[in-house]
Structures are given as structure tokens and as C-alpha cells.
């Protein structure tokens, strides 16, 4: 079942609250909405993965694409509260060295 992430704006920060699955199905349905929400006023995008237990390559692709795009606009991306498994996956891909990733254990990297 598709679980579209929730988007909220707080000053210059766009908060993306992801649900249990952050996979091809969710990405396909919400990436357009995400792109529309990144206006000139947004300097930071925060992905909250507190509830996320499954992140697939499409989800990772979107996170990195967002990071690369925000970088070009002198903005930033943060990924918060990832589970241990997801943190390990992002580490394997060295993404914890490029993006600010916080695990639920409280490790801060990037």
C-alpha cells in the first residue's frame, strides 16, 4: 500500500515526513509535489525517517537527487532519525559522508 510522505514548510525549511515505506511507489507519486514545494524561499530540506523501515533504491535516488539539487542552490538536505539498518545502507554508499544523516541512535554524520 502506498504511503505518501507529508510535506510541511517551516520558515525556510521544508520538512518531509516519510512513512513506513519509502520506495518506488511512494517516490513515483510524490516527487512532483516535492519539486513544486522547493521554492526560492526554501534553503533546507529535512527528511524525517523516524517511521521508515524500508528504503529502496528509488528512495535513495530521490534523497541524493534532492541533495545534489539543493547543493546547486546553496541549500542543504538533512536526513533524520534513520534506523540502524538504513544507516548502514547509507554508509555502504558513503552517503553519510556527503549528507547530514542522523540515526535514531543519535549519531550525527555528514
Amino acid at each position: 500500500m502506498s504511503e505518501i510522505p507529508l510535506l510541511t514548510v517551516n520558515n525556510d525549511c521544508l520538512m518531509v515526513t516519510c512513512k513506513t515505506n519509502f520506495t518506488a511507489e511512494e517516490v513515483h507519486q510524490f516527487q512532483g509535489h516535492l519539486l513544486d514545494s522547493i521554492t526560492d524561499d526554501i534553503s533546507k530540506v529535512v527528511f524525517d525517517l523516524t517511521e521508515t523501515t524500508y528504503l529502496d533504491s528509488s528512495g535513495i535516488g530521490l534523497l541524493v537527487a534532492c541533495h545534489n539539487s539543493m547543493n546547486l542552490l546553496d541549500g542543504s538536505v538533512e536526513i533524520r532519525n534513520v534506523s540502524e539498518n538504513i544507516y548502514r545502507l547509507l554508509s555502504l554508499m558513503r552517503l553519510t559522508k556527503r549528507i547530514n544523516v542522523t540515526s535514531t541512535q543519535g549519531d550525527d554524520h555528514g
Binding site: I60, V64, N68, M93, R94, R98
Partner: peptide, 15 residues
């Protein structure tokens, strides 16, 4: 051989 490395096709300065 568990080593961290960048994915392909995303970063010009990939390691």
C-alpha cells in the same frame, strides 16, 4: 570486503 564507496552516476568526485 565491506568498504564504503560512492554510488555511480551521482557525484563527479566519486570515491
Amino acid at each position: 570486503f565491506d568498504q564504503e564507496s560512492d554510488i555511480l552516476g551521482m557525484f563527479p568526485n566519486a570515491v
